[in-house]
């Protein structure tokens, strides 16, 4: 378990934003997530794949008006993980001085 109860998969800023947006809705379209996170399609795909591999996100392709769209949604496990991650962040904020030593590793995972 990552330090302070933070979720290593959700921790990276782009994945945190993806989970935050998906937590408010059932599904969001790939293009919307790309626009709102401000990353390229390939970078977004990589982050979504990591979330999918962790069982946090499901990806679904749908053809509308002969155009294929990809929809992403948080799984129940993903919703629980995001809620726990936010709770852990709030705990860290409440004990702010103790949080000063938490750093980020090169792969985006949190560590002390």
């Amino acid at each position: 378990m990552p330090p302070h109860g933070l979720d290593a998969v959700i921790h990276a800023p782009v994945r945190l934003q993806i989970c935050a947006m998906l937590s408010a809705t059932d599904e969001a379209e790939f293009a919307l997530l790309r626009d709102e996170t401000g990353v390229s399609e390939s970078v977004l795909s990589k982050h979504l794949k990591q979330l999918e591999d962790a069982g946090y996100v499901t990806l679904r392709k749908a053809t509308v008006a002969s155009r294929q769209r990809t929809w992403a949604g948080l799984t129940r496990k993903g919703r629980a993980a995001f809620a726990a991650h936010v709770e852990a962040l709030n705990r860290l904020v409440r004990s702010e001085p103790a949080a000063a030593g938490v750093l980020e590793t090169p792969d985006g995972a949190p560590r002390r």
Partner: peptide
């Protein structure tokens, strides 16, 4: 991090 997530929503 919380501000980033809140801003996204």
């Amino acid at each position: 991090a919380l501000a980033t997530a809140t801003a996204a929503r």
